[in-house]
Computed example of a mutant assay.
Amino acid sequence: MTRMLLRLHTPLPEHAADSDAALLLALKRLPRAAQQVFLLSRLDQLAQARVATRLGLPLRSVERLMVQALLAGQPRPDGPTSQAARWYVRLQSPDVTACERIDFRRWLDASPNHLQAFHATELRWRSLYAPALALGRDGWYRKGRAALSLGGCSIAAALGMAVLVLLGLWT
């Protein structure tokens, strides 16, 4: 998802370092699966299909988690902003159809606000690189599916099953 879909005429802001801390905090607040999908895509530049295969997730789930990462830290994104994020991610999917590309073009042409929101989404994707480096600094996201992503529920369930087996209550 690193290639730009539309040519941008707006450079990145010079005060980007000021917002990096806020973006990093917003990314840290995402669910672990969303962080992992985002980092594999942004830092390792894996295509959505490769991320889905690597994590054992459906492609649509990867898309949903990527949209969640793109919108992280934005105070209640408006309609065009949310739609632009969904379009940005969907257009990177290997499953995108020609009809969807036509629908995107119609959406883009329907309002100047749509074009502005899409440009802002592309700029946001670019601005997330530095916070992504900080978040994925130790490479934790490459270790496969996060076992503790359910807040320890998977460990508790496994321990509970082991106790039941040991007590002979599970047949």
Rank of each mutant, 00 (worst) to 15 (best):
I155Q: 15
L6H: 09
L40H: 06
G151T: 09
G136V: 07
Y141D: 12
L57V: 01
A162D: 13
L12D: 09
P131F: 04
D103H: 15
A49G: 00
G152D: 05
S93D: 05
L128C: 03
A132L: 05
D18K: 10
A26V: 09
R145Y: 10
A52I: 11
R86H: 12
L6P: 00
E100H: 04
L23W: 15
I102D: 11
T81D: 02
T2V: 07
T121C: 14
L71Y: 08
G144Q: 10
I155P: 00
T171L: 11
G144Y: 08
A120G: 04
L39N: 03
A132F: 02
V96I: 14
F38I: 03
P13L: 05
A132D: 08
T171Y: 07
R137K: 14
Q92N: 11
Q45I: 12
L108M: 13
D44C: 03
A72R: 07
S111K: 04
L148R: 10
H9V: 12
R3W: 11
S82Y: 07
P11Q: 05
M4H: 09
Y141F: 15
V37R: 02
H114W: 07
L43D: 06
P94S: 12
A22S: 10
A69Q: 06
L39R: 06
I155E: 14
A130W: 01
P77N: 12
W125M: 08
H114V: 03
L23Q: 15
L30V: 06
D18H: 11
W170L: 14
R124I: 06
L24K: 10
D78P: 04
R126A: 14
S149N: 10
G73D: 10
A85N: 04
R3S: 12
Q35C: 06
